[in-house]
Design a binder for these strands. Structure first.
Length: 586
RNA sequence: GCGGCCGUAGUCUAGCUUGGUUAGGACGUCAGCCUGCCACGCUGAGGACCCGGGUUCAAAUCCCGGCGGCCGCACCA
């Protein structure tokens, strides 16, 4: 943490954001409520631009889908997903001093239970354990009331007078999983495919107070990528196999070290540091995405989550972290290997088939050997144990059983002696055309609001005592400003012509004629307008204007009618600033 | 949620200890003048004491409660 919070970037950016209209705390007229923000005109545009860039990076190029589902969902969805069980913490309140404690933490501290165990306890069991061990308030020695759960999902009821519980979704992912069958049909029943959802999610955080970094209502970007676990290869991996990833591995962390290892994608996969190709691919893409938002590679890392830190649905998880002035390493995306967990759960809870059919190349003819217990023999002999024997027979390998019975004349099964006459061994020909399986899922998940903050922080520069937001040109909320050098002699009229022409071209343009030209440049720099187009006396003579670069403050000159084509190319990175015209000496 | 600190125009802030000020400044905004390329200057305008209660002749100032913020602790799937 920096020694001075007074002037850290978070403070500077929050102040600027409020003043110039990027974002501010919501409901200020009613005192505000922590964890909610309002995006102002510039912030809303910036966020939209960043999300569009995500679409370009992660959706468009791969033919993935984007969908939009509801924020409120019926209770069943989150019972199935495991959130109702996992998205809550047991709490107890001291009856005397009203202090609240995490019940599981008390048991860990005063009863010496490991966290693995306390996590499984029911409220009743916690209550009993607290009473038995006579655990009292560590602060005042008072007794505790009944333990209760604090659910971090927002709860509501659906419909009037209804008992139907609904929850605000804590992630957009479930909106994709519950629609999986249709989405799979829409992908023409082919794997792999990816589905994205960008939308609000709700988490009733206990105490959010980090601006855009921790919100109760926020925008989540979930990409659920479905693939066949038997065919996990990613065709794009060869394009990025020499890209590097900076990893802080779980095994390193267990040694209490923060040492970062840097591997090529190829190496991470060969060494098994990342379990699935696609996960590595999305991680590289995430790295490049952050670079394109202005975060250099050395300010990024991927930290592998430890077993007890992982979400209940993941078997391997990496958090992509970016270094921030105020908070140090901060998560901007999570990359979880969710396996078939979610679809399996929804299949179980809904009774719907979530498996997909995979045809084999040729139908396979199989001879199936089936063991059929003969109850009329087994019953009288094993009596009370008969059911156990039948149960065991259903699990036994028919081939081995048959082989033993013919060779030795009996088979010892869990201590029971099975004779040939107890069973009938049936042979059947089965033709298999394919098989059913549940796809696996790799999920990259971004916090849109954090991306906005990170983009702001990395764009923040001070030049000659002035603030300049050096946004990447394709996310800047306003693309260019149009300025008459002075507000007389027909310059404003000419400038407005240029202004309307560029608006008509689809650009986000601002017209400004108030104050000196330097003041207008400064104002524009502060909100990150990449280009300034100035109409001067020469414009009236030869139809040329100057174009000023926000970052270098250099100027070039070119004809007005050249602007549309040049500027379209410039904002798509097809041209650099110097190529926009003849350099101007100032 | 606990503890400490705090809450004054759009933003940053002075004033609060010791009650009585037209509540001061800076930046920004708007209007006019000025302005020939990097926040020039001038004139003017608009704009604030978090909410509620109490003490008092009188409260931005003191007391109580609420709400909110910052910092620390806890929480962070």
């Amino acid at each position: 943490m920096p020694p001075s919070r007074k002037q850290d970037k978070f403070t500077l950016i929050s102040e600027l954001a409020k003043r110039r209209g990027f974002f501010w705390p919501s409901f200020e007229i009613y005192g505000g409520v922590g964890g909610f923000v309002t995006y102002g005109p510039l912030g809303a545009l910036l966020k939209k631009r960043i999300e569009d860039k995500f679409r370009d990076f992660f959706i468009r190029k791969f033919g993935f889908f984007e969908i939009e589902s509801s924020v409120i969902m019926p209770g069943k969805v989150f019972e199935a997903s495991g959130h109702v069980d996992h998205f809550k913490e047991p709490m107890v309140e001291c009856l005397k001093c009203k202090r609240k404690f995490r019940a599981d933490h008390l048991l860990e501290e005063f009863s010496g239970m490991p966290s693995m165990e306390t996590e499984k306890l029911s409220l009743q069991e916690i209550k009993t354990k607290i009473k038995k061990d006579d655990i009292r308030c560590p602060d005042c020695g008072g007794e505790f009331g009944a333990p209760r759960h604090f659910l971090t999902m927002f709860t509501t009821t659906i419909g009037p007078y209804s008992d139907a519980v609904g929850y605000g979704r804590p992630e957009a992912a479930q909106g994709i999983f519950v629609e999986f069958k249709r989405l799979h049909e829409l992908s023409r029943e082919r794997l792999p495919f990816g589905v994205v959802q960008i939308g609000h999610a709700l988490r009733n955080e206990i105490s959010p107070r980090q601006g855009l970094i921790r919100l109760r209502e926020f925008t989540i970007i979930d990409l659920e990528f479905f693939f066949d676990p038997e065919n996990p290869d990613c065709p794009y991996i060869k394009d990025v196999e020499n890209e590097t990833l900076r990893l802080l591995l779980a095994e390193t962390r267990l040694r209490n070290s923060e040492e970062i290892v840097e591997f090529t994608v190829k190496e991470t996969l060969e060494n098994g540091y990342i379990k699935v190709d696609w996960q590595a691919f999305f991680m590289v893409l995430a790295k490049k995405f952050m670079v394109s938002l202005g975060v250099p590679p050395e300010k990024q890392r991927f930290i592998e989550k430890l077993d007890w830190e992982k979400a209940h649905y993941a078997i391997q998880s990496f958090d992509q972290e970016v270094y921030l002035d105020r908070w140090g390493w901060t998560e901007v995306s999570g990359h979880a290997y969710r396996t078939d967990y979610d679809l399996k759960q929804h299949m179980k809870f809904s009774g719907e088939e979530m498996r997909i059919f995979k045809p084999t190349e040729k139908p396979v003819e199989k001879e199936a050997i089936q063991v059929k217990p003969i109850r009329s023999k087994i019953g009288p002999i094993f009596k009370n144990d008969a059911e156990k024997v039948i149960e065991a027979l259903s699990k036994v390998d028919a081939k081995i059983l048959e082989e033993r019975l013919t060779r030795k004349g009996f088979y010892m099964l869990e201590g029971f002696k099975i004779l040939p006459e107890y069973v009938e061994i049936k042979r059947q020909k089965i033709v298999e055309h394919g098989k059913r399986f549940i796809p696996h899922v790799v999920e990259p998940s971004f916090g849109s609001d954090r991306l906005v903050y990170v983009t702001l922080e990395y764009a923040y520069r001070v030049k000659k005592n002035r603030v300049v937001l050096s946004f990447p040109r394709d996310v800047a909320p306003i693309q260019m400003g149009i300025y008459p050098l002075v507000s007389r002699d027909g310059l404003p009229e000419k400038a407005k012509e240029v202004y309307y022409m560029l608006l008509d071209e689809g650009f986000y343009v601002e017209y400004d004629e108030s104050g000196s030209i330097g003041r207008r440049y400064a104002r524009a720099d502060e909100i990150g307008v990449p280009l300034g187009i100035t109409i001067d006396y020469q414009t009236l003579e030869d139809g040329t204007v100057t174009i000023r670069d926000r970052d270098s403050w250099k100027q070039v000159r070119n004809k007005v009618q050249m602007l549309p084509e040049l500027l379209h190319k410039y904002f798509r990175y097809k041209l650099e600033f110097e190529e926009l015209g003849e350099p101007v000496k100032t």
